[in-house]
């Protein structure tokens, strides 16, 4: 894992062999994710079921409120599936975002005692949430079987949307972890962002509900393109202007990831002193 070669430590130098280091520490990355996963499912008394129960219960409430009470249009798709297809990517983003935000502070004792590329920590938090995401996906399959809803060839486009979602989540996770390590009060902002984000994203409703003239503006929320993409590929739900919102989403996600990495790396060298 360590090179037998020479290591040179100089101010600002760490940046230079950063990617090499990251590659060298890939096993630690695996162990970190493994440990976080173990802990997550050990700590909760109901264990793995939690990953499934949470989105399931949220879906039931949303279906009741938006579908049955508010009677929002679903375009002929069972409202439960519609909500769940939106909830799935959102829940992944929200959990990963919150966990990444707290990840550095939670691992303070390790960070101040051992060197390794710190990027592993928020990235591992994202991976752990991704496992939850996969577990929660099984519910969607169950729902579709229940309603007898079969996806068509568009399902093959799903990995693309999952990829954009992952890029977005990692980017946002890097930003929030670096910011909350640097500014201690950022911790309190995280739940707020997650809560507001849920209502600003088309989770409980279709984005067609947003007036045509505001669609473009609405698409500036990168979750819009992703959620609509999920619905399009899984349920065949047409929302109009999908290409645009997905393109915006992809561009913003990439931007967030690149700037997130740059910011994280700049903060990283002084991380042990910040915590």
């Amino acid at each position: 894992m360590f090179a037998a070669k020479t290591i040179v430590i100089e101010p600002g130098r760490s940046v230079r062999h950063y990617w090499r280091d990251l590659w060298r520490y890939r096993e630690l990355f695996y162990f970190m994710a493994w440990r976080d996963l173990l802990l997550r499912y050990k700590r909760m008394t109901i264990g793995f079921a939690w990953a499934i129960l949470r989105p399931l219960l949220t879906m039931l409430v949303f279906t009741l409120v938006f579908g049955k009470l508010a009677k929002l249009p679903s375009g002929g798709i069972p409202y439960a599936i519609l909500v769940y297809a939106g909830l799935l990517p959102w829940q992944f983003f929200a959990t990963a975002f919150a966990d990444a935000g707290n990840s550095l502070t939670n691992k303070e004792t390790i960070i101040t005692k051992i060197y390794f590329p710190r990027l592993i920590i928020p990235a591992s938090a994202v991976i752990v949430s991704f496992v939850d995401f996969l577990a929660a996906s099984s519910i969607l399959v169950g729902l579709m079987v229940w309603y007898g809803f079969l996806p068509d060839g568009r399902i093959f486009a799903l990995p693309l949307f999952v990829f954009i979602l992952f890029v977005l989540t990692l980017g946002a996770g890097l930003w929030i972890s670096a910011l909350s390590a640097k500014y201690k009060d950022f911790r309190y902002v995280i739940p707020f962002i997650v809560q507001i984000g849920l209502y600003l994203s088309p989770v409980g409703f279709k984005s067609t509900l947003v007036p045509e003239m505001w669609r473009m503006v609405y698409a500036l929320n990168p979750m819009v393109g992703i959620i609509e993409g999920f619905r399009w590929s899984i349920l065949g739900a047409e929302s109009g202007g999908l290409e645009t919102s997905v393109a915006i989403s992809a561009a913003l996600s990439l931007l967030l990831l690149l700037t997130g990495m740059a910011y994280f790396r700049r903060m990283e060298s002084s991380l042990a002193e910040l915590l």
């Binding site: 360590f2 090179a3 037998a4 020479t6 290591i7 040179v8 430590i9 100089e10 101010p11 600002g12 760490s14 440990r35 173990l38 802990l39 050990k42 700590r43 004792t109 390790i110 960070i111 101040t112 005692k113 051992i114 060197y115 060298s269 002084s270 042990a272 002193e273």
Partner: peptide, 30 residues
């Protein structure tokens, strides 16, 4: 490499293990 130097240079030849604490990363639940 936990802190970054303000100035100066360190050159290390070989695999390093730092033991600044016993049981770094031990988790009570595990």
């Amino acid at each position: 490499r936990i802190f970054e130097p303000t100035s100066g240079r360190i050159q290390i030849q070989g695999r390093v293990a730092s033991l600044l604490e016993v049981g770094t990363g031990f988790h009570p639940e595990l």
